[in-house]
């Protein structure tokens, strides 16, 4: 990879890139811990996850600040411009993902106070997929391998299918047993939060594709007139 002649600019871009990677790592950890807090009925871990959100929020502020300064000082163009504009968006997506991990942890705290409704099978599967999506999007961001980002977009369909399966199954349980409704609603919410994390991961992948290729792949399923 060719470097910028201006070493200070190069260092600013590297700082931004590293901050994004650190933030992505924290995000992934929060996804992991929020679901583990639920599956292992570990309320301490749920509380720790809630507290960690604040670090991710700080990462977002830091990324915004770095981008803002680079825009003001460097007037980036071409791939640099695509990087900066998408970095701003990526930070926002990751912040939303960590908020959702907080939401899951809050539901875990409530559910951990009640007897377990049923073994968690599809929820951890969904979590695995969402983590993979975030990881693939970030891998594509690091390596420039656009195929990995396209894979993320496909994986979102798998997450949606699992979400629907979970919802259907919970409906069955709740219609049979009124005592199960409150816990059922919480678990359904967890599935919904995971499904929304996947949507944010898909956005991340779209942003990475734009960064690499300069091609906007958002809403490409829309008719031409709406998409333009």
């Amino acid at each position: 990879m060719t470097r910028h002649t201006d070493k200070e600019y190069e260092a600013e871009l590297r700082d931004l890139r590293e901050t994004i990677l650190v933030m992505a790592g924290r995000c992934e950890e929060m996804i992991e811990n929020s679901i583990r807090a639920l599956v292992d009925r570990d309320s301490d871990l749920a509380n720790k996850t809630i507290a960690a959100d604040h670090t991710v929020n700080r990462d977002e502020l830091r990324i915004d600040e770095l981008c803002f300064l680079i825009l003001a000082k460097r007037q980036p163009v071409a791939s640099d411009l695509r990087f900066i504009t998408q970095a701003l968006k990526m930070a926002n997506e990751m912040e939303r993902i960590s908020d959702l991990a907080v939401n899951i942890s809050e539901r875990a705290l409530l559910l951990n106070k009640e007897p377990q409704l049923k073994p968690y099978i599809d929820v951890p599967r969904m979590k695995e997929l969402v983590q993979k999506m975030v990881r693939n999007a970030i891998d594509a961001f690091v390596s420039g391998e656009v195929d990995k980002a396209y894979e993320v977009i496909k994986q979102d369909d798998e997450v949606d299918a699992l979400y629907q399966a979970i919802t259907r199954e919970l409906l069955k349980v709740m219609t049979r047993d009124i005592e199960a409704v409150e816990r059922g609603i919480h678990i359904q919410s967890v599935a919904k939060f995971l499904e929304r994390m996947a949507d944010h991961s898909e956005n991340l992948a779209e942003q990475v594709i734009f960064m690499i290729k300069g091609k906007d792949v958002r809403n490409t399923d829309l008719p031409e007139s709406d998409a333009s």
Binding site: T2, H4, V77, A78, S79, K213
Partner: peptide, 14 residues
């Protein structure tokens, strides 16, 4: 925003 040639990219981004 997205030049085609790598040499253009390198020149305009410094």
């Amino acid at each position: 925003t997205s030049p085609k040639d790598q040499r253009t990219e390198e020149y305009i981004t410094g």
